[in-house]
Simulated scan of single mutants.
Amino acid sequence: MRQNPSFALTDVAELRRLIDLNPWVTLVSDTDDGLVASHYAVLLDDGRDDLTIVGHVGRPDDAIHGLGERELLVVVQGPHGYISPGWYGDVPSVPTWNFVSAHLAGVPDILTPEENLAVLDRLVARFEAPMPAPRMMWERPNDAAFIEKLERGTVGFRLTPTRVTAKRKLSQNRPDDVVETIIAGLSGEGPHANAALAAEMRRSQDARAAARIAMEDAR
C-alpha cells in the first residue's frame, strides 16, 4: 500500500479499534508456489495492549501458507467507499475512494492445542454473544469429543507484527465545508450512500475539530 504522510495512521489505539471492529481479514503469503491468500476472523490478543492478533486457519491452509515458517501479511479493511467529484463543488476534480485499512506483517507463532481452543472459544463468544439466545462453543449439543475434533482441524496462530502500514484516507486534505458535503452525500439515500464510511468521516472530522480547539486554547 503506497503511503501518504497526510493519511498515515500510526496511533496504536486507533489501529486496535480498526482491528476490533473489522475482524474479517485477508491473510497473504509469498510461497514457493506463488502468492496465496485466505480469509479468516482474528481477534486482538487479550493479554497484550499492542497490535498482536490471534486467529486460526483450517487445515490444510496452514501448509499452503507455510504458517509459522515465513512472513504473513494480514490485510485489515475498514469502512470504504466511492467519493463523487460532484461533492467537491464547482472545481476541477476526479472521483476517488475513501478508506481505512492496515497491513500487519510478521512471522506468526503457532499456538498449542490448548491455546487454540481458548482462541476458538473467544471467537465464538465474540460473535455469538449478541444473539437472542447465544449458543457458546462448549454448550450442548456440542460435547468434548466434537470440540476436540474441531480443534484438530484447525491451526491457531499469534502474530505480533514487525511491520505495520496503515492508512486513513477520509478527505482530510479537503476544506471543512467539502468534508461536510461528502458526509451528507454518504449519509443520504443516493447510489453511493455509505453509513459506515460517513460515521468514520464524522468521527475523524470531530477529532480534527477538537484538536484545533485544544491547540488554540494552548496558545
Score class of each variant (00 low, 15 high):
E189P: 00
A118G: 03
S38I: 02
E200V: 10
H56P: 08
R158H: 14
P130I: 08
Q172H: 03
D30Q: 09
S171E: 12
R17G: 15
S29H: 05
M215N: 11
V94I: 13
L35S: 10
Y88E: 03
G188C: 01
F146A: 12
L72H: 09
G89H: 01
E216N: 12
P113S: 04
L186T: 11
L159I: 01
R122G: 06
I183Y: 00
D177F: 06
G156A: 01
L21K: 09
E200H: 07
L18N: 11
T96G: 01
I213F: 11
E180S: 06
N4E: 14
S29C: 08
R70E: 00
S84Y: 00
P134A: 10
Y82D: 01
R174Y: 01
N4G: 01
E71S: 14
V28Q: 06
A198Q: 10
V124C: 11
R135Y: 04
A144H: 06
D177E: 14
R17H: 13
V12E: 06
R158E: 11
P60R: 13
G66K: 03
R174D: 01
A209P: 10
V25E: 09
Q205C: 04
D33S: 14
G86R: 06
V155A: 03
R140F: 04
Q172S: 02
P79L: 03
A199V: 05
T181D: 07
F99A: 12
H80S: 14
S204C: 09
G153P: 07
M215T: 15
A209K: 15
R158P: 12
D11Y: 05
T10Y: 01
V100R: 13
M137W: 07
D206G: 09
A37L: 10
F157I: 05
S101E: 07
P92Y: 04
H39T: 05
L111V: 06
L123D: 00
S204H: 13
E180K: 04
P130A: 03
L73A: 11
D20G: 12
S93G: 12
A195G: 05
R59E: 15
R208K: 12
